[in-house]
Amino acid sequence: MTETLPSPVVNADSAPYWQGAREGRLLIRRCDACGQTHFMPRHLCPACWSGDLRWVEATGRGTVHSFTIIRRAPLAAFAPRVPYVVALIDLEEGPRMMANILGDDALDTAIGDAVAVCFEDRGEGAAVPQFRRAGGRG
């Protein structure tokens, strides 16, 4: 029996983020005081500590800042997926986030690849943001 992949853990900081993922939208936090966007969602802006934050929908476009191909899964649930790509994605809006690169050509990933967000079902309607190679270099 294969273990299921982890579902998102929703808390007070992240509830709208994960609700967005259920709806196929990548939401990030923008500070109205200093204009900076950030990842991960927080109670205040890590750049200026203002609480004047809003959720904005990211375009979902980004580039691969770095990546690795995992050959030995850290948890049993990921073992059937080996080898798979874990990457740090620089979003067009600025913030950096982690995700897998999915798709048949994932193992061809290179630094600088343009990628686009997609959403992976994690059961009972929950989803996590993921990325696919979008062709071209950012």
Binding site: L5, S7, V9, F39, M40, I70, V86, M98, A99, N100
Partner: peptide, 8 residues
């Protein structure tokens, strides 16, 4: 919440 769900 933001790294472990990806099997990192």
């Amino acid at each position: 919440y933001f790294e472990q769900p990806y099997g990192s």
